[in-house]
């Protein structure tokens, strides 16, 4: 689950999963509000709040607005979320009053399958809907989070199983079939603006809305990323390298997850 440990000069050894969580956390700006999915997004959002973004407002679909958990919750409804929240509201209110009008800056989601336009599948894989190869949990809050947050970050472990040419089911819309599709559909938010994996960081091309590899994590080659992508990957003319996790980031992350092999989604 944790991949190969990477040693970078001046930085502590870390796993690929830890690099992913740290890179995802860095994407969150202080003073913004973030609708947090469980698992990897929750790990990253809580790491950000302990580090560079102490005024990040965490919103959980269970009704906790402005939660400040001191340990990583296992579920989106752990007691620590309600106990530390600015406000606790009912579930219809979360979706109707807070999410739907576009009050929330960032929707932070994960995916079982993701395509080149950032469309997400968390419903079924293989077969057809009625007789699926694998039945997944389903939509939860994600379709409306993906539609209504001002922008969406997606954090997902990358492989040919998760980065697919065509998602088997569109549970949540990214950029649909390409540039302009969100506007045509009337989706208010900007959609996915960043995808963070255990290999690198992707952003949609402004012209085509197709995901472009912009950064690789330390020790990862562009070729490795291509091999873990189920389509002909677009690569930026200059690919940067993510700054390795600092000792401080790793300490904070491990305090949350219980160590390099701890829970993280």
């Amino acid at each position: 689950m944790t991949g190969t440990s990477v040693e970078t000069s001046g930085h502590a050894a870390h796993t690929a999963s830890e690099m992913m969580s740290v890179a995802a956390a860095r994407a969150l700006r202080d003073g913004t509000s973030c609708f947090v999915g469980i698992g990897l997004p929750s790990t990253a959002a809580n790491l950000a709040r302990r580090g560079h973004a102490p005024n990040l407002t965490l919103i959980y679909e269970s009704g906790a607005l402005g939660a400040r958990p001191d340990s990583l919750p296992l579920s989106i409804g752990d007691g620590i979320l309600a106990e530390t929240a600015d406000a606790v509201v009912g579930v219809p209110e979360v979706f109707n009053y807070w999410l739907q009008p576009g009050r929330i800056d960032v929707g932070f989601l994960s995916a079982a399958q993701l395509d080149r336009f950032g469309n997400i599948n968390t419903t079924v894989i293989g077969g057809d809907y009625a007789n699926p190869g694998v039945r997944l949990p389903g939509a939860g809050g994600a379709p409306e989070i993906a539609a209504s947050c001002r922008e969406v970050f997606i954090v997902v472990k990358q492989s040919r199983r998760s980065f697919v040419d065509k998602v088997d089911f569109v549970t949540s819309v990214g950029h649909g079939s390409g540039a302009g599709d969100r506007a045509r559909l009337g989706l208010p938010g900007a959609g996915p603006t960043m995808v963070i994996t255990d290999l690198g960081v992707f952003r949609p091309d402004p012209g085509t809305a197709e995901l472009v590899l912009e950064q690789v994590h330390p020790g990862v080659t562009v070729q490795q990323v291509r091999e873990a992508t189920g389509w002909e990957l677009a690569v930026a003319s200059e690919v940067g390298t993510t700054t390795a996790p600092t000792a401080g980031e790793l300490t904070a992350l491990r305090a949350l997850t219980g160590g390099p092999d701890g829970k993280e989604g």
Partner: peptide, 20 residues
């Protein structure tokens, strides 16, 4: 329903067995 899973753990295997 809207989300059938074991929160923070993974899938529901009896649900999955019934559907699949």
């Amino acid at each position: 329903f809207s989300w059938g899973g074991n929160p923070g753990v993974g899938s529901l295997h009896r649900f999955r067995d019934a559907v699949q």
